[in-house]
Amino acid sequence: MNIVVCVKQVPAKDAPLAIPEGAAWIRETDIGFELNEPDGYALEEALRLKEKHGGEVVAVSMGPERSKQAIKEALAKGAERGVHISDDKFYELDPLGSARCLAAAIKREKFDLVLTGLQSDDHGFGQTGVLLAELLGLPHATIIMQIDAADGRLKLKRELEAGWFQWVELPLPAVLSIQSGINKPRYATLKGIMAAKKKEIATLTRAELGVTVSPTQRIERIYVPKKTKKTEILTGTAKEAAAKLVEKLKHEARVL
């Protein structure tokens, strides 16, 4: 089974988010980046399916030069090849435009299955997998917690709200958005990291892909949301704050 897995690089979870006045994106200097966490689960699922059914895993990432690191991580864990869609005009892209670029790159591959994470930790539109399915003309399913492949079909466990699940079946080729927690992602081994250095990362530009985009939406600005609730912050040393909290819970909130 040949699998394309989409991996996005996002600002690290604990990165301090500095927003220049009126900007639509954070200041990138001095912050770390990492593989979008949900994509780690999608990658692991791709590797397991390959190990079980044969084939190759190709990691595709779109973003500035730095996002190649997400591909390298995938290669170190066992993906065969990488495709980097390089673009320095991301601010022109919306989810549909981004998906068009990814779809154009994926179309160049011979694949049976495309996996994405469910949602990115930065923009978090949560649409890319579903859009890829439409653009590639393939069936899809999202929020996937288990994949059983047999005879050109997939049986999938979808997560629904409030602890419910559903089994669905669909034919390959298909696109799936993977939910976090579906597996335990492996760590890259030293051997894997060394081997990755010899693996190929192809680079494609938007022009090479022949994608012209006309955005359907625009982020005007981002900002720290205004607090609407008055939280009483208890200060002092750990001991002092703890003592104040116990006092409040007993005599003010009366919940103890």
């Binding site: 955005p215 600005r221 981002i222």
Partner: peptide, 8 residues
């Protein structure tokens, strides 16, 4: 963060 988004 929050974001203001408009359609185009």
């Amino acid at each position: 963060t929050a974001a203001d988004v408009i359609f185009q």
